[in-house]
Amino acid sequence: MLLSIALMFTIGILLGELFTKFKLPGFIGMILTGILLGPFVFNLISDEILTVSSDLRRIALAVILLRAGLSLDIQDLKKIGRPALLMSFIPATLELIAVVIFAPLLFDISYMEAAILGSVLAAVSPAVVVPKMIALMEQDYGQNKKIPQLIMASASVDDIYVIVLFASFLGMYQSGDFSFVSMMMVPVAIVIGIVIGIVIGVGLAAFFAVFRVRDTIKVLVILGVSLFLYVYEEPINTVVPFSALLSMMVIGITFLNQSEERALRLRDKFNRVWVFAELLLFILVGAAVDIELAFTAGGIALLLLFIELLFRFGGTQVCLLGTTLNQKERLFSGISYLPKATVQAAIGAIPLEMGVPHGELILAIAVLSIIITAPIGAIGIDITHKRFLKKG
Score class of each variant (00 low, 15 high):
K79A: 13
L32E: 00
I28E: 07
E95W: 04
S88W: 04
I59E: 03
P104Q: 05
E17L: 11
T93S: 15
A84E: 05
L70I: 06
D76V: 09
G38W: 02
I74E: 00
L24H: 09
G81D: 09
I97K: 11
L36P: 02
P91C: 08
I35G: 01
T33Q: 02
A84D: 08
A68F: 08
T51G: 02
A62Q: 07
D73G: 08
D73N: 14
G16W: 03
L15M: 13
G81M: 06
L36K: 02
A62D: 11
R58N: 12
E48Q: 14
T33E: 04
S53P: 07
I80F: 11
F102E: 11
V63C: 03
R67G: 01
A114H: 03
D108Q: 15
K21A: 12
L36H: 00
G29D: 09
G69C: 04
V52K: 09
F19P: 00
L105G: 03
M112S: 13
Q75Y: 08
A98Y: 04
L94Q: 10
L65F: 13
G81Q: 11
G29R: 06
L85V: 14
L105E: 11
S71N: 13
E95K: 03
L65P: 03
V63G: 02
I31C: 00
I49K: 04
V63P: 00
G16M: 10
E17P: 08
G81S: 08
D55Y: 15
L106V: 10
Y111F: 14
L56D: 07
E95A: 14
N43A: 15
R82T: 15
L86N: 08
I74M: 15
G118R: 03
V99K: 04
N43T: 01
L94A: 04
I109M: 15
T33D: 10
G38T: 00
A92Q: 05
R67Y: 04
L36I: 12
K21T: 13
F102L: 13
Q75T: 09
D108A: 08
L44P: 08
S46R: 00
K23D: 03
R58Q: 05
